[in-house]
């Protein structure tokens, strides 16, 4: 089931808490599933002593993946035609993130109706960690 174009108004929004108190273990879990074992995400000794950051931080793609869950919960499974983001701040263990989508446009594309969404994900300090856009097919 997708969203129905008749039910959408510009400025409508949907949001979800996508992670509450991000754990180092979830970051490791993402490393294993994605195959990205960059030690800045899991290796406290390397990241503090060599890379120079205060502790390990999440893969940008983990934040994009978790934000994608909010998106598919909103627009429906298999409905996205485009999803793109910028990683604007790092995400750290202990962060609680909220992802939000806002209806920017409803338009015709390839003989169907689609919605353009503006996306943002913020942390517990209301600092943006991710901004982006998505397009999804509507009913």
């Amino acid at each position: 089931m997708g969203l129905n174009s008749n039910d959408l108004t510009i400025g409508d929004s949907y949001s979800e808490v996508i992670v509450d108190d991000l754990t180092r273990t979830q970051i490791v879990q993402y490393a294993g599933a994605s195959g990205d074992y960059n030690p800045v995400h899991s290796d406290e000794k390397f990241v503090t002593e060599v890379a120079g950051y205060p502790t390990v931080f999440a893969h940008g793609m983990l934040t994009m993946g978790m934000t994608g869950r909010m998106l598919t919960n909103y627009v429906g499974d298999g409905r996205l035609t485009y999803y793109g983001v910028r990683f604007v701040n790092q995400v750290w263990p202990g962060d609680t993130l909220t992802a939000r989508a806002e209806v920017a446009a409803v338009r015709e594309e390839d003989g169907g109706t689609v919605v353009d969404l503006t996306i943002s994900t913020t942390n517990q300090d209301e600092k943006f960690v991710l901004t982006g856009n998505a397009t999804a097919r509507l009913d």
């Binding site: 793609m61 996205l80 793109g84 983001v85």
Partner: peptide, 21 residues
Amino acid sequence: KKSGSSAGGLHAEQHFTYHRH
């Protein structure tokens, strides 16, 4: 001496266009 880039840099943007899932 720490560049923050010892691991080859950071991810700035990612975009996917889906022709099908």
